[in-house]
Measured scan of single mutants.
Amino acid sequence: MISLIAALAVDRVIGMENAMPWNLPADLAWFKRNTLNKPVIMGRHTWESIGRPLPGRKNIILSSQPGTDDRVTWVKSVDEAIAACGDVPEIMVIGGGRVYEQFLPKAQKLYLTHIDAEVEGDTHFPDYEPDDWESVFSEFHDADAQNSHSYCFEILERR
């Protein structure tokens, strides 16, 4: 099963200049909980913004210009990325925008964090048809001392 995991502000903004323009430790914990011990696929820009392999996960970098870091697996196509994951129950696609666009048609599940923030962004989550998805989990949280904005975790499964 292919799943996408993303944090989205208003207007589906997911990033600005290779960074997330908010401070939500709870979302980072949600991300870790849902990706640990699963292969993660990301684009080169996302890889560069993280700066290191995510521990406890097979890191697969999709790029037309593969790098030389041998701590991760470099691939040039969506099919190659899927094959590099091996026989696993769930593959997690973690961004960025172009990689989400490439995998959305193949995805069966979306793990979304909806952030109540209007922020400037240069990267967006692809538009998706809500009628194609069923919400199977939703959990709202107010902003607090650690988390700069209110947010809602949601899991959607393709109908």
Rank of each mutant, 00 (worst) to 15 (best):
I2K: 11
S3K: 08
L4C: 01
I5C: 01
I5Q: 00
A6L: 03
A7C: 10
L8P: 00
L8V: 02
L8M: 05
A9T: 15
V10F: 03
V10P: 12
R12W: 07
I14P: 00
I14T: 03
I14M: 07
M16F: 01
M16W: 05
E17V: 00
E17F: 01
A19Q: 07
A19T: 05
M20W: 01
M20S: 00
P21W: 00
P21G: 03
P21S: 07
N23Q: 07
N23A: 13
N23P: 05
N23S: 04
L24R: 01
L24I: 13
L24F: 08
P25H: 04
A26T: 02
L28Y: 11
L28K: 02
A29R: 03
A29C: 02
A29K: 04
A29W: 04
A29T: 04
W30D: 07
F31V: 04
K32M: 02
R33L: 05
R33G: 02
R33D: 11
R33A: 10
R33K: 10
T35L: 00
L36R: 11
L36G: 09
L36N: 13
N37S: 08
K38T: 13
K38Q: 02
K38F: 13
P39F: 12
P39K: 10
V40L: 11
V40N: 08
V40K: 00
I41Q: 01
I41G: 02
M42T: 02
M42E: 02
M42V: 00
G43E: 02
G43R: 03
G43A: 01
G43V: 01
R44K: 13
R44I: 04
H45K: 02
H45G: 09
H45V: 01
T46C: 05
T46S: 14
W47L: 15
W47F: 13
W47K: 14
E48Q: 11
E48I: 06
E48H: 11
E48A: 13
E48D: 06
S49R: 00
S49C: 04
I50T: 04
I50A: 03
G51I: 13
G51D: 10
R52P: 11
R52D: 09
R52Y: 09
P53I: 05
P53W: 11
P53K: 07
L54A: 01
L54S: 00
P55A: 07
P55I: 07
G56I: 03
G56L: 04
G56H: 07
K58N: 13
K58R: 07
K58L: 08
K58H: 06
K58P: 07
N59P: 11
I60S: 03
I61Y: 03
I61W: 01
L62P: 02
L62I: 15
L62S: 03
S63L: 04
S64C: 13
Q65F: 08
Q65D: 09
Q65S: 10
Q65C: 11
Q65W: 12
P66M: 07
G67L: 12
D69I: 06
D69Q: 05
D70L: 10
D70C: 10
D70K: 08
D70Y: 08
D70E: 08
R71S: 11
V72G: 13
V72A: 13
W74R: 05
W74Y: 12
W74G: 06
V75L: 12
V75G: 05
K76D: 11
K76Y: 09
S77P: 01
S77T: 14
S77W: 13
S77R: 14
V78N: 14
D79R: 05
D79Y: 04
D79M: 08
A81S: 04
A81V: 14
I82W: 11
A83H: 06
A83D: 05
A83K: 07
A83P: 11
A83G: 07
A84G: 04
A84M: 05
C85E: 05
C85F: 15
C85T: 08
D87E: 08
D87K: 10
V88D: 13
V88S: 12
V88M: 11
E90Q: 04
E90N: 06
E90D: 09
I91A: 15
I91V: 15
I91T: 14
M92F: 15
M92R: 01
V93R: 01
I94M: 04
I94G: 01
G97L: 01
G97E: 04
R98Q: 01
R98H: 15
R98I: 01
V99T: 03
V99C: 13
V99L: 12
Y100C: 07
E101P: 00
E101S: 07
F103T: 11
P105D: 05
P105R: 11
P105H: 06
P105F: 10
K106S: 09
Q108F: 08
Q108I: 04
Q108E: 08
Q108Y: 07
Q108W: 08
K109G: 10
K109E: 05
K109R: 11
K109S: 09
L110K: 02
Y111Q: 02
L112F: 12
H114Q: 15
H114D: 11
I115M: 08
I115S: 14
D116P: 06
A117G: 06
E118M: 12
E120S: 06
E120A: 04
E120K: 15
G121Q: 00
G121V: 01
D122N: 00
D122W: 01
D122S: 02
T123R: 11
T123L: 01
T123E: 02
T123C: 04
H124M: 08
H124W: 02
H124C: 15
H124G: 14
P126F: 02
P126Y: 12
P126K: 12
P126I: 15
P126W: 12
D127H: 14
D127C: 14
D127A: 13
Y128W: 14
P130G: 13
P130K: 12
P130Q: 13
P130T: 13
D131R: 03
D131Q: 03
D131M: 03
D132C: 08
D132W: 10
E134W: 08
E134L: 11
E134N: 09
S135W: 06
S135F: 13
S135P: 12
V136P: 10
V136I: 10
V136F: 11
V136N: 10
F137Q: 10
E139V: 06
E139A: 06
E139Y: 05
E139P: 04
E139N: 07
H141E: 06
H141A: 05
H141F: 06
D142C: 07
D142E: 10
A143H: 08
A143N: 06
D144C: 12
D144F: 04
A145L: 07
A145Q: 06
A145F: 10
A145E: 08
A145G: 10
A145I: 08
Q146Y: 09
Q146S: 08
N147T: 05
N147C: 04
N147R: 03
S148T: 12
H149P: 13
H149I: 02
S150D: 11
S150M: 05
Y151Q: 14
Y151P: 02
Y151A: 13
C152S: 15
C152F: 09
C152G: 13
F153G: 02
F153A: 04
F153W: 03
E154C: 15
I155Y: 06
I155Q: 06
L156M: 15
L156V: 03
L156C: 02
E157R: 09
R158P: 05
R158D: 04
R158E: 06
R158I: 05
R159V: 11
R159A: 10
